[in-house]
């Protein structure tokens, strides 16, 4: 393939025939039993999860799920979870921890559902709580981006000991369209945003955020799902084997350091102090 631009990558990551979570899970795992509901409010088809057998052990699967056609996409809200979807994921994280099962998460979402109902049910809290719980979860976690990594909506099931990305996937703080709209008031500038924002798997590896890139068959995963599945399976087996060697405390320490060290800044010689000696505050009673 000729060199792909970031915008080309975005199109590939969003390709409608691209394999989704359930495709990979059914191909890679035996005995997959899907679990439903958040036990609080409802069942969100945008998030799927359950128990499965992978590489000779029981694992917990959680992933975003898009649809194969328009009808299914509407049912699955295009892979955009509502709070109940994140709370189902939360329940499954805790279930995995209770039984000592490694957690395999599959990321493929345009972002969290931006509706009135989702706001009413606490979308921000659902995402925040998931990130918090994943941060301290006492089992190995591997998060793999298989399509689009849509911002906080992705991160809410994406805080892993390892972050893997299929070759033609993206992970961004906002979609290129949203970035173009926010920064330049022109959503049609999305291809420029895609380039400037550094959202491809290669960018994330260079930035030290993704731990590995999983190669896709030439033309993209959708052109040869079997080969894509095989590559994904091999990567998961490799990383899972490494993580399982670690004692829990070591695992948590390393996870802490992974996220603790993300960010680029400098230290200035002359500090820009917020306050002069006298302070500037208003007088609160």
């Amino acid at each position: 393939m000729t060199t792909l631009t970031p915008w080309d990558k975005v199109q590939l990551a969003r390709h409608p025939q691209r394999p989704h979570t359930l495709d990979y899970v059914r191909a890679l795992c035996e005995d997959f039993v899907e679990l439903h509901g958040d036990r609080r409010f409802g069942e969100d088809p945008a998030v799927v999860g359950g128990l499965a057998r992978f590489d000779g052990q029981t694992v917990m699967i959680v992933g975003h799920q898009k649809g194969k056609d328009t009808r299914e996409n509407v049912r699955r809200n295009f892979g955009m979870p509502r709070p109940e979807g994140y709370r189902k994921a939360l329940r499954l994280f805790q279930h995995a921890e209770k039984f000592g099962m490694p957690l395999l998460c599959f990321i493929d979402t345009p972002g969290a559902d931006p509706s009135m109902e989702s706001e009413e049910r606490g979308q921000a809290e659902a995402i925040a709580e998931n990130i918090m719980v994943m941060a301290g979860l006492r089992v190995p976690i591997i998060a793999t981006v298989i399509g689009e990594g849509g911002s906080g909506g992705a991160l809410a099931i994406g805080v892993g000991d390892r972050l893997l990305m299929l070759e033609h996937t993206t992970y961004s703080v906002a979609s290129p369209e949203a970035t173009a709209a926010i920064l330049w008031r022109d959503a049609s500038k999305a291809p420029d945003a895609a380039r400037v924002m550094r959202i491809t798997a290669q960018d994330l590896l260079e930035l030290g955020i993704a731990d590995a890139i999983i190669p896709e068959p030439s033309g993209g995963a959708h052109t040869d799902p079997e080969a894509a599945t095989a590559a994904l399976g091999a990567a998961l087996r490799e990383h899972l084997a490494e993580l399982r060697q670690l004692k829990t405390e070591e695992l948590l320490d390393r996870r802490y350091q992974k996220y603790r060290s993300i960010g680029k800044f400098q230290e200035r010689q002359r500090a820009s102090l917020a306050v002069s000696a006298n302070g500037q505050g208003l007088v609160f009673p």
Binding site: A135, L207, Y256, G263
Partner: peptide, 20 residues
């Protein structure tokens, strides 16, 4: 936005610190 996915990951970094 201008720090891209580095900014996104601060969501994980802040919560990670809060676990302690």
């Amino acid at each position: 936005q201008h720090e891209g996915v580095l900014s996104l990951m601060q969501m994980a970094k802040t919560n990670m610190a809060l676990t302690r």
